[in-house]
Design a binder for these strands. Sequence first.
DNA 1: TTTTAAATATAGGTCTGACAAATATCTGCG
DNA 2: CGCAGATATTTGTCAGACCTATATTTAAAA
Lengths: 252, 252
Amino acid sequence: MILKYDEVVRSGIAKQVAENIRSAIMDGRLKVDERLPSEEDLARSFGISRPTVREALKRLAAQNLIHSKRGPTGGNFVKRPDPEGLSKAITGAATLLVGVGAFDIEEIITARRETETICCRLAAERPDPAYLALMEDEIRVQEDKSLSDEDFCASDVRFHRALVDSTGNGPLKLMMYTVIEAFIPITNMIVFRVRERRRVASLHRDILEGIRAGDAARAVAALGQLLDYVSQSYAAALQARENRKLAGSPEA
Amino acid sequence: MILKYDEVVRSGIAKQVAENIRSAIMDGRLKVDERLPSEEDLARSFGISRPTVREALKRLAAQNLIHSKRGPTGGNFVKRPDPEGLSKAITGAATLLVGVGAFDIEEIITARRETETICCRLAAERPDPAYLALMEDEIRVQEDKSLSDEDFCASDVRFHRALVDSTGNGPLKLMMYTVIEAFIPITNMIVFRVRERRRVASLHRDILEGIRAGDAARAVAALGQLLDYVSQSYAAALQARENRKLAGSPEA
DNA sequence: TTTTAAATATAGGTCTGACAAATATCTGCG
DNA sequence: CGCAGATATTTGTCAGACCTATATTTAAAA
């Protein structure tokens, strides 16, 4: 008997059942791809109703821990953890955090500077033609003057994603998804109005060529310039807003 | 009417409702702390049953997007996103990934080296007495010879967490939780058998004193030595296993 | 004999309707 | 005026039923 019913207080049963199963997965009592007992069996063995069991299972499904399949060979199965799904989840949550103003923009820029510097260095150590080509493609996209602001930002994100991927370091990539999917868009959102695309694209090219040449210092320097420019743009945007405020209510 | 019923195909209704509400939260149509319609109202307006609505809501609750309260003033409320909850979620998922062997240990050590180096540098720029004291405490704990292996590892994690927190950079802290809660434990798990505690504690002290003195180079150097040591210990552990294998089946 | 099509059994997906439990608010009595 | 109890609202749980997808088995047809 893998799952046990541990004397539950009379509130949040579904939550507790979910936690019970979750811990079974986490400490390996339930292995990847293993099938859980059917919902009815679970209900019986926990002494609760099937809808309640289902609520618990849905919680786990929402956390990407299990997935379900119908039919005779169906059931609820322990899902193989995948970095892709995790990064999606992180992205969404981090985006919300950013959206609610949990972080200062300057703070975000600092984090970008430090972490992307790492990526440049690692990428330059062992340049991978495949990712170099990806970055090249995006730079070309960014040089297209007819591009919408939205598409330009999207290409910017893809460029930096390629940069991160080219490090070939799985754990680092996992961490960097937050930067790529949440922090880069927010910095773009704020500064893209005042930003000169040619400048950005040209700095992207400097980064690329630095990496291609195995010249980490050059890539890092270009990245530094890029983020300096972003930071200045942000300061300028703040200043402009301040000026509008002063001009808007001088006679008050 | 905030939530609309968008012509749904006949499968995965709960999932789609969850996605509908989720997007309403993500793009701000539902604000933080705002109350959702009662479950019955939701069921009516989506044209589905209440249990199905509840499954959807549970999915969202599992993602920390909403929380519920009973009673007349109760209901389901949009939850304020908190870094704490997010880091918990990341931690769990990353731990699973590590557990399933998704990452190479050397890769993890590299990621630790690069990212924790950042933390040392930022921490040394503006040393914060509060966090210095925390690190000092943990080093003292680690010098206690009667400590269990488990407690030593736990203290190790707390030391590195204090190091990260002392950078004062919110976005960076968010990213580093993965390292702290998932990567550090796994590296510890693998090498703690061959590891000399005195050596580790002493390197921790070097890091601390480097930061205290505002001497980033010294802290970074000590961190490097620490991770070199971890890496060597890992190699030694691998070698030992290899030897056992050879000794175990020589006549085969 | 092989292939195809229909029946069947299994397990998740959804619905209806009900009661339990928590809790803010209202009501009436001291 | 203050407090205890009734009340209403909303989530939490339950029971049992039916629908739907799908693998397997069985039977018919080529």
